[in-house]
Amino acid sequence: MTQKDFIPNLEPKNISPGEVSWQSPSNIALVKYWGKKENQIPANPSISFTLDNCKSTTTLKFSKKDEITGTAEFDFDFYFEGKQKEDFKPKITKFFQRIEQYCPYLKDFSFEIHSENSFPHSSGIASSASGMSAIALCLMDMERKLYPEFSDEYFTKKASFLARLGSGSASRSIDGGLVVWGEHKDIEGSSDEYAVAYPYKVHEIFRNYKDTILLVDKGEKQVSSTVGHDLMHGHPFAENRFRQANDNLKALIPVLESGDTTEFIKIVESEALTLHAMMMSSQPYFILMKPNTLQILNKIWEYRDKTGIPVCFTLDAGANVHVLYPENHETKILEFINNELVVYCQNGHYICDHVGDGAKKLYF
């Protein structure tokens, strides 16, 4: 599907005021997306595990305006965890501006958006993926009432397409399991416009992988992801990095099929460190890892060497560490975390998560 396919070409039906609710999870990239072109197009493809426990729950209340003028504005209020949040409205307005040509009904309605996260707002877990995908799903649910003819496949792809225009990584939070965003010649159906469920065979060991997130630093990042992505323009290592991401995604295909955790670890940890290497070698340069991040990485390496258990780490654009491991080692890894790693977490906090099934509609 192309962008034009997501522009409605039918007259919308009249619908009564109503509300829709969706839960959408966060995700953690294995091959990282870092650097983008215009209109939220990724400079390289990425693949992620969809999580389960770290999610946003969003309700969209809608009612058609009594009178619509040619100068109509977006009319909405945004509530986070029950409190009106004016400071978040500019982000929603920008999102609506980006998607208006694909959702031409937006200015015809008044909205109330209510959102909450299953994880603490200050936990250092990026909420843009879960939050923006949940809003996109709510809009698509409303759109299905306006244009009831479209298919489930169209619903999913357009939801991912809209989510991408809010936050690139949000495109990967619609489907469950392993999800690919960005065109790659070896991934059938892959697209820069929306994410797709990984289409090939996945070994049982990777279907229920565990992700324990160690909260090293709950503070706001010193550099936003948007700024970080922009610094890839003119970066001296950018082209090699984009090539590396493509190569690593190709290399993961046989690894995911065979269940080869040794090769999985090599690719995933290299990707995490390369992401931060790009930040440290941009201009201006910056470091988002903290001393305790490095302590944890070294402890994981030592533990893996000593025990042979295939535990590894990945990082997002921050200081927190995602500890990835097969389900059958959960008891030992949690013991290791509590005995040796929790001391490096802010207030001893960590979150236990695992690969999930993707976004879900809520019925009341």
Score class of each variant (00 low, 15 high):
Y209G: 02
I47D: 05
Y194M: 06
I15R: 06
T69K: 13
Q101W: 01
F206C: 12
I309W: 01
F78I: 11
S24F: 12
W34A: 12
E204W: 03
A43L: 12
E220W: 03
A29E: 07
M278I: 13
G318I: 00
P310L: 05
V323I: 14
F96N: 06
F161S: 07
Q283R: 11
Y147S: 03
P120E: 13
A129S: 10
P120V: 04
K210A: 03
V355R: 07
V342P: 00
R241I: 11
P284A: 09
I309G: 06
K210P: 10
P45Q: 08
L315I: 01
F161A: 14
N9T: 11
G124Q: 02
L215W: 00
N320E: 01
S191N: 13
I28Q: 02
H184A: 03
N292T: 12
E302L: 05
F78Y: 15
K65W: 04
A317V: 01
K332D: 15
Y102N: 11
N39G: 05
N117A: 06
L294K: 04
K37Y: 14
H229D: 09
D52V: 00
S24A: 15
S128I: 08
I28E: 03
N240H: 13
N53F: 13
I187N: 01
L137V: 13
D305R: 14
I205S: 08
S110G: 15
G182H: 07
L256Q: 03
P148M: 00
L60G: 08
D108Y: 12
V342E: 04
S171Q: 05
I187F: 07
S258L: 03
H184W: 07
N14V: 10
S21E: 15
E330G: 11
P148V: 02
S127D: 00
N320P: 10
W181C: 02
T314L: 02
